[in-house]
Design a protein around this nucleic acid. Sequence first.
DNA 1: ACGCCTAACTAACAGTTGTTAGGTTGTTGC
DNA 2: GCAACAACCTAACAACTGTTAGTTAGGCGT
Lengths: 209, 209
Amino acid sequence: MAESATSKVSEAPRTAVGRDGVLDIAARLFREQGYGTVSLRKIAEAAGIKAGSIYYHFGSKDEIVAAVLDVGIHVVHENMRQAVSALPKDTGAETILRAAIGAHLRALLDLSDYTSANVRIFGQVPQSVRDANLPTRRAYEAEWDTLLSRLQDEGALRGDVDIRRLRLMLIGALNATLDWFDPGRGSAEALSRTYADVFLNGILERQDT
Amino acid sequence: MAESATSKVSEAPRTAVGRDGVLDIAARLFREQGYGTVSLRKIAEAAGIKAGSIYYHFGSKDEIVAAVLDVGIHVVHENMRQAVSALPKDTGAETILRAAIGAHLRALLDLSDYTSANVRIFGQVPQSVRDANLPTRRAYEAEWDTLLSRLQDEGALRGDVDIRRLRLMLIGALNATLDWFDPGRGSAEALSRTYADVFLNGILERQDT
DNA sequence: ACGCCTAACTAACAGTTGTTAGGTTGTTGC
DNA sequence: GCAACAACCTAACAACTGTTAGTTAGGCGT
């Protein structure tokens, strides 16, 4: 045969997609289309490989989606933790809350397909996968509860709503933005400010000035 | 689990399930398990009939889910509209908003599998089905926008947030309760009050009495 | 030059999906 | 008693699902 060294290099993308590449694409598809309608063949096609090849990197579809879910929480957790701990020690409650809200919203809407995929598909995945993601989730929830409790003990937060419910309301409201947020219509930053305004002070017009 | 109605449990359900019966069960399953994982055979089995029989009542799976989505919005829309219009004419802004929030939350958490199914599966359904549901949706959204605009014009609502965003935030936050609300842990009524408190006045502790 | 490792491929499997065509009931009107 | 109809059933279809087994191809260290 003729020289094989140079003749065939042009066609196929010889750079391996790899485990991380598959995971990235899976996260994106899950975020865009949900869990049930995204098949391994769709993921494979988007990655430029064949369905069977995925099993070199993952043992099952559950394993893929479990990995996506875990990474999603880790990203938003780390983002929120750093945003809060980067503030000076004497920062006021309002500023702290604004930072936490902003960090969560940024991870969700700007930063990570993994985080947005988590929020979108958590309710659609098999229960075993959900259970596997629960510890990671609870760690992030605990981070919020700790923060909110501290502020409530300081007297900065109203005392008539228990922390768990407050956290569920807050994160639930932020996550809901995923259903309608359009980056072409406004920035996540601006949205973050509005959410903080409303959550901190309410939507009623106040008489005091 | 399914037998409940008559004392005559002998063999076959003499009473026809009918179109409405299938739709009821579809709504419940969609709410519980999402769109993609609920097959026609699951619906049929839960209804006590065979999969093929569904096609006597509906032309396709899309037709079923489209019907569920439409009913879901109609229920919550009617519920909210009546709750607000039942109030005396001189009712204050705060009371009106509390009534609207309560009506939405009640339809979602207590009243209707159709409404909760709509919220849960809207993002998972084929785009053609979503598009078919859009007009119904927009009518409900317009109801909210009208209400919020009126209150804002009266000076009862803060003026620095535009109505569309305010509505998206509000309904999004309420709908998010579906992911964690547990009827055994608290009533929808109590939850409704908390949501109104927080949304109207914010979560910060205030100095004024 | 050799063997190993990584990353892919092909081809098939058993099961499930939405859907269709044609057949079988039970009830009702006449 | 018979026809008409509504509500269901049976059986199959093509397409798609996750998954497995066995194979191939290139790069690296020795």
